[in-house]
Amino acid sequence: MNITLTPAVRELLEFLCVHNEALQNAAFLLGGAPGLRRTQSLIDRLTSTRQLSRKARQELVGLYQLLSLENVGYPDTIETACFAILDPEDPIVEDLCLLTDNLRDHMDAVEAEAILPVFHFGIAA
């Protein structure tokens, strides 16, 4: 099942296109090569199909979880290793936070327009 291109879906897709490079850089910084590959695949699929499929929604949740450091703290994850390298004083940290917040805002807007739940974060807003 695909979601029609509501205004919020269009804006989400536009956000992903405009911030394509920043999202890829963030995914690599926080998830290494696997995070980068998943993000590239997601953005490529969404920009070519322009449809928010069930798989794309799941991958968007995964991207948000990567950017929001959900898996940091688990000793055997690449996310923990990547995060350990970051300097909290580096200006990139603020950029990562803003990018993550903007992605969440767009995902929340899609959710608000939907009749049925679209994204399942499993976390409180």
Rank of each mutant, 00 (worst) to 15 (best):
95 D>G: 08
10 R>I: 12
60 L>G: 00
114 A>G: 12
50 R>G: 04
100 T>W: 03
32 G>A: 02
95 D>M: 13
48 S>I: 09
28 F>K: 02
63 L>M: 07
18 V>R: 15
62 G>H: 04
66 L>Y: 04
106 H>D: 00
37 R>Y: 12
13 L>H: 05
68 S>K: 07
92 I>T: 14
71 N>E: 13
13 L>D: 02
101 D>A: 06
11 E>P: 00
120 H>P: 00
125 A>Y: 13
11 E>S: 10
104 R>V: 01
26 A>D: 01
115 I>S: 13
93 V>R: 14
54 R>L: 13
73 G>L: 12
110 V>K: 03
114 A>I: 05
3 I>C: 00
74 Y>P: 02
41 S>N: 14
68 S>W: 03
42 L>P: 05
55 K>N: 14
49 T>C: 04
109 A>N: 06
86 L>A: 06
44 D>Q: 09
18 V>S: 13
20 N>L: 09
33 A>P: 01
47 T>N: 14
77 T>E: 08
122 G>R: 04
8 A>K: 02
108 D>E: 12
93 V>G: 10
6 T>N: 02
1 M>W: 03
49 T>E: 10
1 M>A: 05
5 L>C: 03
42 L>V: 12
22 A>H: 05
41 S>M: 14
39 T>S: 14
18 V>P: 09
66 L>A: 06
121 F>K: 06
68 S>Y: 08
76 D>M: 11
116 L>C: 09
87 D>R: 12
5 L>I: 00
51 Q>L: 08
14 E>P: 03
83 F>A: 12
96 L>C: 11
85 I>R: 12
123 I>S: 13
84 A>S: 11
54 R>S: 11
114 A>C: 07
58 Q>N: 11
66 L>K: 03
13 L>G: 01
20 N>H: 15
57 R>Q: 13
31 G>D: 01
7 P>F: 04
26 A>P: 02
65 Q>E: 12
57 R>V: 09
80 T>I: 06
94 E>D: 15
52 L>Y: 03
89 E>V: 15
53 S>F: 08
7 P>D: 08
58 Q>H: 09
120 H>V: 09
13 L>T: 02
92 I>N: 10
124 A>I: 14
87 D>G: 08
48 S>D: 07
